[in-house]
């Protein structure tokens, strides 16, 4: 996957699965659609570090969600910081 598919403004869907070990993808933000706000550096995936697995740094993103998309209610936004591995860009319909 080309990394330039990830850029501010791109809509992404988060991973929906519940991994067996440590993860930094909060349960409430799984399988949800949000928008990339900005990149917040590069870091090894926390899931791998927690298991002692070697991991190369990868982009970490601020992803903004509408509360209604996460909880079915609410007019606020929630911005979560997520490793790129958790995210899949959504291709916009032309």
């Amino acid at each position: 996957m080309s990394t330039d598919r990830f850029a501010p403004g791109v809509r992404v869907r988060t991973r929906a699965t519940d991994p067996a070990g440590h993860t930094r993808l909060p349960r409430y933000a799984r399988g949800a659609v949000g928008v990339l706000v900005e990149q917040a550096g590069r870091h090894p995936l926390a899931d791998d570090r927690a298991r002692g697995v070697p991991a190369d740094p990868q982009p970490v993103w601020h992803v903004r969600f509408a509360a209604a998309d996460l909880f079915g209610t609410g007019d606020h936004t929630v911005t979560v910081e997520l490793w790129q591995d958790y995210l899949t860009p959504i291709e916009e319909a032309l």
């Binding site: 930094r24 993808l25 909060p26 933000a29 917040a40 550096g41 870091h43 926390a46 970490v60 601020h62 509360a67 007019d75 606020h76 936004t77 929630v78 911005t79 979560v80 910081e81 997520l82 490793w83």
Partner: peptide, 12 residues
């Protein structure tokens, strides 16, 4: 006034 919540879920 809208509300923006920031979850410090990673390194920032």
């Amino acid at each position: 006034t809208s509300v923006a919540v920031w979850d410090a879920s990673a390194e920032s």
